[in-house]
């Protein structure tokens, strides 16, 4: 579904602190499966996630989504595609403080327009499925870490994307909460969504639903399983 060919990504290009996070990635990500990018910190797995999820463009190389080359598209089109196709759950959640849970969940759909009542209902349903239906009106900063993550997941799903992308989802959680989060991802995978995770948590690797693990080191793929 998503193909990367000879993808390289650099930061601060041309300057003295130039840093190549990805050094030639060739990858094919199958749909409707759980794929994990595994590796130590600095291996480029987060950067890979951003390139796969259209959050960033590769410095060189090609990214193809369902056969269409998207690496050269202007920002507008890229953002539109990203909105429709990908839902992101960040490691630090990055919820907007001061807004209610419901408002946070609805945010990614704002630029699309559309019926407000329908959107609100959709957001409420998502929160309900995350067992947070009763917390819709609360401000996000009042929620516990685990609850905030579920809000972040709900937010990622509000535009009904095919692919859910999560960066280190279990990094800030204990074992029980980690298992809960993985269970949620499992339900989503069963419903047909593609799940992409980065992790260096062995709990994630041991998770039976993981179909492929892509190991990274120094910006290169060193193993696929």
């Amino acid at each position: 579904m998503i193909e990367l060919s000879a993808v390289r990504k650099a930061f601060n290009q041309g300057r003295e602190n130039e840093y190549w996070a990805l050094n030639g990635i060739d990858l094919a990500i199958p749909p409707r499966q759980v794929t994990v990018f595994f590796g130590p910190s600095g291996s480029g797995k987060t950067t890979l996630l951003t390139v796969v999820g259209c959050l960033a463009r590769p410095t060189s190389g090609r990214v193809r989504l369902r056969g269409t080359d998207i690496s050269g598209l202007p920002e507008r089109f890229l953002t539109g595609i990203r909105r429709r196709t990908f839902g992101f759950v960040f490691q630090q959640f990055h919820l907007v403080k001061g807004l209610s849970v419901l408002d946070n969940v609805m945010l990614p759909a704002y630029p699309i327009g559309g019926d407000w009542r329908a959107l609100r209902r959709r957001a409420e349903d998502l929160l309900e499925s995350m067992r947070l239906g009763h917390r819709g009106g609360a401000r996000v900063e009042w929620l516990s870490g685990g609850e905030q993550q579920r809000v972040a997941i709900a937010r990622a799903l509000v535009n009904d994307p095919e692919v859910l992308v999560a960066d280190e989802p279990t990094a800030n959680l204990d074992s029980d909460l980690s298992k809960q989060v993985l269970a949620i991802f499992g339900d989503l995978a069963a419903a047909g969504r593609t799940i992409l995770l980065t992790s260096h948590d062995p709990l994630v690797l041991d998770w039976p639903l993981v179909r492929s693990v892509v190991s990274l080191r120094d910006g290169r793929i060193v193993g696929e399983a």
Partner: peptide, 11 residues
């Protein structure tokens, strides 16, 4: 955050 969750510069 807004940019990350899908808002464009223009938005």
């Amino acid at each position: 955050i807004l940019k990350a969750i899908g808002w464009e510069t223009g938005d």
